[in-house]
Structure formats: structure tokens, C-alpha cells
């Protein structure tokens, strides 16, 4: 069976302490409980969570949706976005099956990146590795005023901004993430597409699509 891999790359740096990190935690839970009711997603989506502060960790390896448990997250440290980008490429290289003549591979992975600050590490190697990988849809979310949009815009044309990193806005973002995953798992089903369609459902009012 061809899987639809989904990578959530989440900023858990010190600035996310308090309401933002709680909102992200709830957001992941919200997303999970919405997706587990969607038969398309339940049959094809696989989810992984990568967090970054000063260190980068894949807190949930690519896991079948029915086995996925929302991870516990705690905030603190710097914003190693560059290392996180390298990590998601490394994980995808290890976990996502490529199509060969003998075996249909997985669909192209979806990536959702969320950050509220500016990188504190050297992002260039990470950006190079990331943009060389063939992703399906990449959505980057700049949460709050302190987030560095220009770097995210080098990763994808789908950059969204949240005016504030409060729980209502963050939960609206995750709701949108789950409907994007639902839509993609439906689309890969309509044979013919290679899962690389860049169509996203319209974002809710809390989310602004950033202009390049």
C-alpha cells in the first residue's frame, strides 16, 4: 500500500513557553482526533513529529495514523531551524519508500513547518538539503510577529502567517493542517495524480497567506 507521509516540524524553543506550546500540543491532538475519523486519512496517512529548539529530535517516527499518539512537548532553548530542515530530509530519506520498477513507492510527503522566531543556527545547509528533496506540499507557518518569514519563503510558496501565537489562532492553524491532510489523502486516491498537487483547502480567517 502506498502511504501518505506527513511531517510536522515544530518549533519548541524558549519563546514558545506557556500558551503557545500548550496551544501547539492541543493543536496536534485536535488534528489527530479529526484525522482518525476520516477513512481516507486513516487508511493512508502516516505522521511524524520533529521538534526543534537548540536540539532537534524526531519525537514521533513516521507512524501509521491508527498507531499515532500525540507526543508531549515542552519548550526551551534556541531555534535550530537549519538543523531541523536537515533532520526532516534525513528522516524522509530513511522512512519514505521511493518508487522503483518493482514496487510502488509512497506518495510524496507533506511537510508542515511552524516557527515563531528567527533561526539561531546556520540555516543554509538545511535550506539546500530541504529544497533538493521532492516534497508533495510544504506549508510553512510563521506564528506571531517575531517569526522570520523570509527564510520560510525560501522553502515554499505556501507561507502562512498567524498574527498572534495564541491558542485560538494556533488551533485554527492545526484545523487547517488536518483538512489539508484529509484533502491530500483523498486526492492521492483519485489515481493519476502523483500526490504532488499543490492545491490546499482555503485557510480560515485567522491565517493569512503571505505574499512573496
Amino acid at each position: 500500500m502506498r502511504r501518505l507521509p506527513v511531517y510536522l516540524v515544530l518549533d519548541v524553543s524558549g519563546s514558545m513557553t506557556g500558551e503557545p506550546i500548550e496551544a501547539v500540543k492541543n493543536g496536534v491532538q485536535l488534528m489527530h482526533s479529526a484525522l482518525r475519523k476520516d477513512p481516507y486519512a486513516l487508511e493512508s496517512a502516516y505522521i511524524s513529529v520533529i521538534t526543534f529548539e537548540s536540539n532537534v529530535k524526531q519525537v514521533v517516527p513516521l507512524t501509521e495514523l491508527s498507531q499515532f499518539q500525540p507526543p508531549s512537548l515542552s519548550a526551551g532553548g534556541g531555534t535550530s531551524l537549519g538543523a531541523a530542515l536537515s533532520k526532516v530530509v534525513e528522516c524522509a530519506n530513511n522512512e519514505v519508500a521511493k518508487s522503483t520498477k518493482e514496487q510502488k513507492g509512497d506518495w510524496k510527503p507533506l511537510v508542515f513547518i511552524m516557527t515563531d522566531g528567527s533561526p539561531t543556527d546556520n540555516v543554509e545547509p538545511g535550506i539546500t538539503a530541504f529544497t533538493n528533496y521532492k516534497w508533495g506540499i510544504v506549508v510553512a507557518c510563521a506564528a506571531g510577529q517575531g517569526a522570520d518569514k523570509t527564510i520560510l519563503q525560501r522553502l515554499t510558496e505556501n507561507v502562512v502567517t498567524l498574527d498572534t501565537a495564541d491558542s485560538a489562532t494556533i488551533s485554527a492553524f492545526f484545523k487547517w493542517v488536518s483538512s489539508s491532510i484529509s484533502a491530500s489523502s483523498k486526492k492521492v486516491d483519485e489515481a493519476g495524480s502523483d500526490g504532488s498537487s499543490s492545491e490546499l483547502p482555503p485557510p480560515p480567517p485567522e491565517i493569512t497567506l503571505a505574499k512573496a
Partner: peptide, 8 residues
């Protein structure tokens, strides 16, 4: 289909 999966 062959090389590029999903293409028919």
C-alpha cells in the same frame, strides 16, 4: 505507468 508511479 512504469517509471513514474501514478501516471497512466
Amino acid at each position: 505507468g512504469g517509471e513514474f508511479a501514478g501516471q497512466t
